[in-house]
Simulated assay, not measured.
Amino acid sequence: MRGWIKGLAVIAVAVIVAACGGQHPQGIPPQFGDAAPHPWYGRTPAGYEVHGIDVSRWQGPIDWQGVASGGVSFAWIKATEGGDVADPMFRANWEGARRAGLPRGAYHFYYFCRTAQEQAAWFIQNVPAERGALPPVLDMEWTRSRNCPGRPSPEWIRAEAQIFMAIITQHYGQRPVVYTTVDFFRENEMWRLNGVEFWLRSVAGHPDQVYPGHDWTFWQYTGTGLARGVSGEVDLNAFGGSRQQWSRWLARRSQ
């Protein structure tokens, strides 16, 4: 779909949600909407108390005061990719979220044709070590890059992840959270990474169904969410515990 048509569709959905007096897709928390809602059954995102967003340049300018007042409790912001790509909106988003008083952290999108050492150094170069920030995130998923089409072995991927995390942990004093997708998690046996907190994508079912037997801390439940302060679609995420548990997690896992 062309970008401007998609944008009109998102605006139309947002208007409809607002006009219906707060109605929202089944299973989505009432403070949010969804441009392409999934029919949720069983345990739904609405059953969790703490929700957040993750953003990059593709969200455009963000009203962070609006985000903070719209039921969002945390945000992860794209900072870097590979060993030489920096998100041009990172600084604005990083400072905007800070001014709004919103807990926020930075994430790195892993590129399989650069070494873990190069990528960790690039992240450190671009992301300040600030007191109170959320732990960094290592985003590992399959890509369709024409410049890097290969798929390394699971053993290589896990070894590189460990190297990256060790460098980042030493610099920031917090071990990264690992974000990944269903196929990547399964094909690379990511559960073999010891002592890791996972942020798992699952837009068609609860993580306990999609990742049976595996622990998780954050759940990305839609990539087409609608939230106050963001003009288009945005990823929505839930913390896998109560608000009291979230407060304890923040105290333990903030830098």
Rank of each mutant, 00 (worst) to 15 (best):
G33P: 06
V85D: 05
I62C: 04
A86I: 12
G71M: 02
G60W: 00
G60L: 02
G96I: 09
Q59F: 10
A86G: 10
I77H: 06
Q59C: 07
S73W: 15
P37S: 05
G33F: 01
S56K: 14
A36S: 15
R91A: 15
H38R: 15
V67M: 07
G60M: 06
D84N: 15
R43V: 13
P29C: 00
R99P: 01
H38A: 13
P37Y: 07
P88V: 06
R43L: 10
W64Y: 01
F74V: 08
N93T: 10
P29F: 02
S56H: 11
G70R: 04
G60I: 00
D87A: 11
E49W: 04
D63A: 01
E49T: 07
D84V: 10
D34G: 03
A68E: 07
V72F: 07
N93R: 11
S56P: 11
S56E: 10
V72D: 09
G70I: 05
A46D: 14
G96T: 08
V85E: 11
V50N: 06
F74S: 04
G82K: 06
D63W: 02
P61A: 14
S69G: 13
P30W: 00
F90K: 03
A86W: 10
P61I: 09
T80A: 09
A68F: 05
A35I: 05
R99W: 06
A92C: 07
R43A: 07
W40D: 03
A86M: 10
G52S: 03
A36M: 12
Q59W: 11
A97E: 03
R99G: 01
G71Q: 09
T80V: 08
K78L: 10
K78T: 10
W40Q: 04
G47T: 05
S69K: 14
F90S: 08
P30G: 00
Q31K: 12
W94H: 14
M89L: 14
R57Q: 14
G52E: 07
G82P: 03
W94L: 13
G70E: 08
G52A: 04
G60Q: 04
Y48P: 04
G96Y: 04
R98N: 07
A35R: 12
T80R: 07
G52R: 09
E95V: 12
S73R: 15
G42W: 00
G82S: 05
A92H: 13
P30K: 03
A35P: 08
R43K: 08
I53H: 01
G82Q: 09
H51V: 04
G47C: 00
P29S: 00
F74A: 07
P37W: 03
E95R: 11
N93Y: 14
T44P: 01
Y41E: 13
W94S: 13
Y48V: 03
A68R: 14
H38F: 15
M89P: 05
F90M: 06
G60R: 07
R98V: 02
Q59K: 12
A92L: 12
S73P: 08
E49K: 11
P88C: 00
Y41T: 15
E95T: 14
D84L: 09
E81T: 07
I77Y: 11
A36F: 07
I77S: 09
G71H: 09
